[in-house]
Structures are given as structure tokens and as C-alpha cells.
Nucleic acid binder design. Structure first.
Ligand SMILES: [Mn+2]
Ligand SMILES: [Mn+2]
Ligand SMILES: [Mn+2]
Ligand SMILES: [Mn+2]
Lengths: 144, 144
DNA sequence: ACACAAATATAGCCATGGCTATAACTTGGT
DNA sequence: ACCAAGTTATAGCCATGGCTATATTTGTGT
């Protein structure tokens, strides 16, 4: 065996890679939205999270349990949900990526409302390299 | 109740919409690939489908069962898999969309290998409107 | 203090898409 | 004809993310 260090979690092919990206999608959307709610209301209630995600309250509760398991959020029973440092950092990154993608689509010619809809799914599959390409495209004569 | 006809299946919000797009992703990838295999080898064997998807053979068998249930494919036990008319039509559409997205990303400045990886996930979330915007961008001085 | 409404948790169901282990079938070679 | 190898099907497990129904807790108003 060679003693070089290989990148971990290298998916075998493009389908496996897309599956991995998808697995993080729910986590990403929840932390971003919990961050939004805390920003807006000072706290994130389960009922508000469920409403914004358009899922039932028990479904939101279950996903929040996964966030907690993965160290992204914290909460005590019947209290609001908070982000850990790691969760807050993820929320910030995810929010920036979301915005970049929407703005890139809009600049390319997609109506903003449609860009918002498409971006909600697309965002989870855009690699860092592609994101930087989008950012560069936006900087080039950005607000024409 | 008003007697106007409303569009069916209108998701309540962007998250529900992304969930719906995701639900079709596996179906789309399988029909496209089965079409590829039939094109290349004259038939699509379960083992080859599983290998290309990087899943186990039983996982492929199960997904093929879903394709059959949904009227996209047909097969008899221990025989190859075939596409129905509907499945073949979907494969054609999905393949064209995949290519458009890859070419658009490449033209925007994303390295081709990365564009291929990202497109495998992105493709399922690009609306018809956005796809047409991409196509127009490609036609404008396409091969510089 | 207490009752009631609202919010949250819990129980228990389902479909999907992963997996491994093993059974059953098909096929090619002797 | 038959056996071995290869291929496909089946059984049975798990995690995730949906749902409804119901229990529990919180907090507010009287
Ligand atoms: Mn999203
Ligand atoms: Mn988002
Ligand atoms: Mn795909
Ligand atoms: Mn594809």
C-alpha cells in the first residue's frame, strides 16, 4: 500500500456523488432556515420551522432530532431550537451559496421567482469550483 | 367553492417543490441509463445497471421494480430490462437536459469533469424555463 | 390556582432506497 | 444430460423522511 494520503469519501462515480450531496440537503435547508428564524424572531420554534418547510410538526421534530444528533443544533423539550457553532457556520455558508446561485441564474436571464424555486434544489449539488465560477461571473460587470 | 380549474400538484412552497423534483430523480437517472445500455449493448442487464449506478444488484432490482410499477420499463424474470414508450420518451428528454446543463456549465467556465459531476444532481432541479435560458445562452456564439 | 388552548413530543404507520446473505434460475462447456 | 458459474430474485435488515392520531407540557387568562 502506498503511504500517500488519499482524500476520504471519494464517491465511486457521479451517481454516488449526487446521492451524497442529496443526503446533506435536508440538514442544510434546516440550519439555514433556523438561522433565518432566529434572526427574524430571536428564536426558532418547531411550529415555525415546520410551517416554513411545509411539513407536519412531527416531521420537523424528527429532522431536528437528526440535526441534534449530528451536532448542528441543540434544544431542550418544549423549548426553541438553537444552532451550535458548527450549525451556525454551516448556515452562513449555505445561505451565501443559495444567494450566489439565485443571483447567477437571474443574471443569466432566469426570472427571479423561478430562480428561487430552482435554486432550492440546485444549491445542494453545486461544487465549490462551480460556485466560484458563478461568483466570478457575477463580479464581471455585476449590476448592469 | 369557485368553479375555476386550478393547476394540479402545485407545491405549497419552494422546499416542497424541491422534494417533488427529488422524488423523480432516481426514475430519471435509471431510464436515461437503461437507454444508454440498450444503445450500447442492445440490452440492459440488471448487473450492468447496478454497476453503472454504483449500487448493489438487489438495490437495482428494487428500483427497476418501481420503474415497472410506474409504467416506464418492462421486464420478465431473469431477462433484460426494456423501456416502455413513455420510458423511452422520458429518457430522451432527460438525456437532452443533462447535456444542455453540462454544456452550459462548461461554457460558463466549469471544467468538464466537474460539470459532469455537478450536472448529475443539478439536472433534476432545473425547470423548463431555466433550461430554455441555458439553451439560449449556448446558442449565442456557441463554439468560441 | 386552575382550566384551557396552544405547542411539542410520542407512537406508530408508510414508501423509498440503501445493504448483505442466500435462493433460484439460466447458460455454456464437457 | 448435466454441472458449474454467472446472473437475477428474494428475504430481511436499516435509515430517512413523510404522515395522522394522541399524549404531554407550557403558559395564559380568569
Ligand atoms: Mn435547498
Ligand atoms: Mn436554500
Ligand atoms: Mn442525475
Ligand atoms: Mn443524468
Amino acid at each position: 500500500m502506498p503511504d500517500t494520503f488519499l482524500d476520504k469519501d471519494q464517491p465511486a462515480n457521479r451517481f454516488a456523488r449526487a446521492r451524497e450531496a442529496q443526503a446533506a440537503a435536508v440538514l442544510e435547508d434546516y440550519v439555514e432556515m433556523i438561522g433565518d428564524l432566529i434572526e427574524e424572531f430571536g428564536e426558532a420554534r418547531v411550529a415555525d420551522i415546520a410551517a416554513r418547510m411545509s411539513v407536519s410538526q412531527p416531521t420537523a421534530t424528527k429532522s431536528i432530532a437528526r440535526l441534534k444528533r449530528e451536532g448542528l443544533a441543540m434544544s431542550r423539550p418544549y423549548r426553541g431550537v438553537f444552532l451550535t457553532e458548527e450549525g451556525a457556520a454551516l448556515a452562513t455558508r449555505v445561505r451565501a451559496r443559495h444567494r450566489t446561485i439565485v443571483e447567477f441564474l437571474v443574471k443569466t436571464g432566469v426570472p427571479r421567482d423561478i430562480a428561487e424555486l430552482d435554486a432550492e434544489g440546485i444549491e445542494h449539488h453545486v461544487s465549490q469550483v462551480t460556485l466560484e465560477v458563478f461568483e466570478r461571473a457575477l463580479q464581471a460587470r455585476g449590476g448592469d
